[in-house]
């Protein structure tokens, strides 16, 4: 962080903020495999060239759990899920939905949403992301 203070910082580098918040991945230019972190070579085909691609902001819940017991400091319960975003698997919490099995199910349609994690001493606000239900 330099003298110029960003007004907003994403929770992770692969979350792009702005008018249309979305996730990005590093895509292998050879085989299309996608990774949310840096790789020296593609885990699928060993090629070494990658390009940044946008991930779809809507998807379908492929699996979830409702975590009731977590490490100290982590608010519970929360819904952890894997979302199929048009062929790319994304790990995220489900938000804006009650954390119980009556309200959460596999096959649910969801969309990316962001929320504030709070403001630091420099006035920068951290922004997290999750997926919330949308009408089918």
């Amino acid at each position: 962080m330099t003298d110029t203070v960003a007004s907003q910082v994403p929770l992770v580098e692969y979350l792009v903020l702005g008018d249309k918040p979305h996730l990005v991945a590093q895509e292998c230019t050879s085989c299309g495999a996608r990774f949310f972190d840096r790789r020296n070579a593609c885990a699928k085909c060993f090629a070494t060239d990658f390009r940044q691609v946008d991930i779809a902001t809507t998807g379908v819940v492929r699996t979830f759990t409702i975590v009731a017991y977590a490490a100290p400091g982590i608010p519970v319960p929360f819904v952890s899920a894997v979302i199929d975003c048009e062929g790319t698997s994304v790990r995220a919490n489900l938000i804006e939905v009650p954390a119980d099995p009556e309200h959460v199910s596999t096959g649910m349609n969801v969309e990316l949403a962001t929320y504030s994690l709070g403001v630091d001493d420099n006035g920068a606000e951290a922004i997290g992301f999750g997926f919330r239900p949308v009408a089918a």
Partner: peptide
């Protein structure tokens, strides 16, 4: 590795084995 500004366990899914 992800340039995270806060712990991701509990914010981006769960790291716990039961979960």
């Amino acid at each position: 590795r992800y340039g995270a500004v806060a712990p991701t366990d509990g914010r981006i899914g769960t790291d716990t084995m039961p979960g």
